[in-house]
Every structure is written in structure tokens, then in C-alpha cells.
Design a binder for these strands. Structure first.
Lengths: 150, 150
DNA sequence: GATGCTATTGCAACTTGTTGCAGTAAGGCG
DNA sequence: CGCCTTACTGCAACAAGTTGCAATAGCATC
């Protein structure tokens, strides 16, 4: 896994901020610490909560603004879960989308094969370059549609 | 277009409610009137606003609950826009998904060809039956990715 | 180490929804 | 036509974000 790479990336965050004339503050440090412990994805509310448990003074607006800044630096990407709630994908190296089964509620990642095929489909049809990691695609998983009640 | 069909559908709403032991109230009538004037999709907030302009007493919770009821009857379907906000698709006969260009902000419908291809891609990869109408797929349109700045 | 510019913070108010609850009113029935 | 059951409604409080603004505090400089 890219765990080693990731830690390098996180250790460089401060420098990345400075490069852009942005400031390194205790609040941002907290957010980055929380994120560095995340593998995959996390909701906005969850980030706020974890920051709060590390520093009770944490304010939601600051967290969301820091998340925006980190997204601009390319360290996280935001998307939306099946319910439309914000979701942040950490470790941009491993871009991936999600599938959500509306029937049984399970979730899983979109495999590279499917991703390729889907990207190709959109590209051929409209020349559209989709970003599958932005949304959670909803539908029905294989077992649920097999036992499709109605 | 299926305008004629639609008006028939809306005129049957009351009966559909009764069939299920649900009640027909002035508030629901207002929501249905608002929806019957919609072609395509509308956000939740927008429905509330329009209902309010027709009946200033309108309460958001009632509107959202009515929308849920209508969804159960299959008269509308909800999804989420690129920003995760709720969006209701009216006229279920014309199921369709949306593409949103993160670069220029334009939106358009996913054509039947692309839809077919995408559905096939997911089905083949995981046996997953996606519901493209549930989310707005984000990416970059042909012209934006052509003039891709960076 | 003090200074000044300005990126950030935290507050407060607002947006979009959601939910529990007690009171209200559809509408089937006698 | 009045009664009764229980599906709705409206309220109020909450959850997840977002935004404007005045005060604070990084940090580059002297």
C-alpha cells in the first residue's frame, strides 16, 4: 500500500501551504492530523467530530474551510455519499468511486475494470470526461437484484 | 412529449393516495399542483418556495414528507445535484441522469446511448445494476477537456 | 525581538433538510 | 350527519454545511 508515500505527503503539507502563501495554524494542523489517520474516506461531520475530540475548541467553519484548502492543494477530494452528504476522499493516489446498494445498503469501490468501461462509455457518447470519484453511484448489487423481490 | 400522459397521471394522484389508505389534504394538493407544473427536475427548496408562494402557510416538513409519499407512489424520484442538494425528478416516464461539468458549470442529460453503455459496464464488472438517475455525474465536458487548462 | 500586512479564525445567522410529538382533521362507518 | 380511528400537520429543536465580518495571529521583514 502507499502508506509510506502518504506519510511523506502529509509531512509536506506545511511546506505546500507555505508555497502558496497560506498559513500553517494549529487548527489546520489538527485537521491534517485527523486526516492522516484516515484511510479512504470520511464525512465532513466526522472530521469535525474527530477534530473536536482532539481539540474541543474546534469550530466547524474552520474545519470545512481547511478541507477546502486541502482540496485545492490536491490532498483530499470531496464527493457526496448516497444521501448527498459531503464525503472526503483521502489519499488522492488511490482515486476511486463508490457504489451503494439501495437495497441492502452495502457499499464498495468501483473496480478499475468497471471504471475504465464507464469512462470509455461517457467519452464515446459525449466526449465527457467523468470523475467517478465525485459521487456515490446508487443502484442494486448483484445479489439484491438477483433476489429482486419487486 | 408525454404532457398528456402526465396530466392524466397527476389527476390520478388523489386516487393513488386513497388506494394506499393515505389522505388527500390541501397541503398535498398544493405540492402536487406545484409539481404538475414542473418539467424535468426541481430542488426540494424550490418546491417549498413555490408552495409557499401559492399558500403562505406552507411548512417545509410537510412538503418534504409529501415528496417522500409521492416518491413511494412512484410519481417523483429524488436524486442529488452536483452539490449534493436534493433534487426531484418529475415525470418518471422519462428516467434520465445528469452530467455536470465542473469546469464550465453546464448540465445536460445523459443520452440513452451512454446510459446503455454505462449500465452494461457496471453489470458486466460486478453485476451491479446502477440507477443513473439518482446522482448527477460530475466531470468535464468535451469542450472544457479539449481546452484543458492544466 | 518588534512591526505590519493579510490570511485565518470564531461568531452568528442562514440554508437545506430531518425528526419527535401533541393536536388536527380526513374520511369510512353507523 | 356525527363519531372515531389514525394519517397528517405544524412546531420546535437538531444536523450538516455555508457565509459575512470584525478581531486575531502567522510570518516575512527590519
Amino acid at each position: 500500500m502507499s502508506t509510506a508515500q502518504q506519510s511523506i505527503a502529509w509531512s509536506q503539507v506545511r511546506a505546500r501551504f507555505h508555497e502558496r502563501g497560506l498559513r500553517w495554524t494549529p487548527q489546520r494542523r489538527t485537521v491534517v492530523e485527523v486526516l492522516s489517520a484516515v484511510n479512504g474516506h470520511i464525512t465532513g461531520a466526522e472530521v469535525v467530530e474527530r477534530c473536536r475530540s482532539q481539540d474541543s475548541e474546534t469550530t466547524p467553519s474552520t474545519v470545512y474551510r481547511t478541507l477546502d484548502a486541502l482540496e485545492e492543494l490536491g490532498l483530499v477530494r470531496h464527493g457526496h455519499g448516497a444521501d448527498g452528504r459531503e464525503e472526503f476522499h483521502v489519499s488522492p493516489g488511490g482515486e476511486h468511486g463508490h457504489l451503494y446498494c439501495a437495497s441492502c445498503g452495502s457499499r464498495w469501490e468501483i473496480g478499475p475494470d468497471a471504471a475504465q468501461a464507464v469512462l470509455a462509455a461517457f467519452r464515446e457518447a459525449d466526449g465527457f470526461q467523468v470523475d467517478l470519484s465525485h459521487v456515490t453511484v446508487v443502484g442494486r448489487c448483484a445479489s439484491c437484484s438477483a433476489s429482486a423481490g419487486e
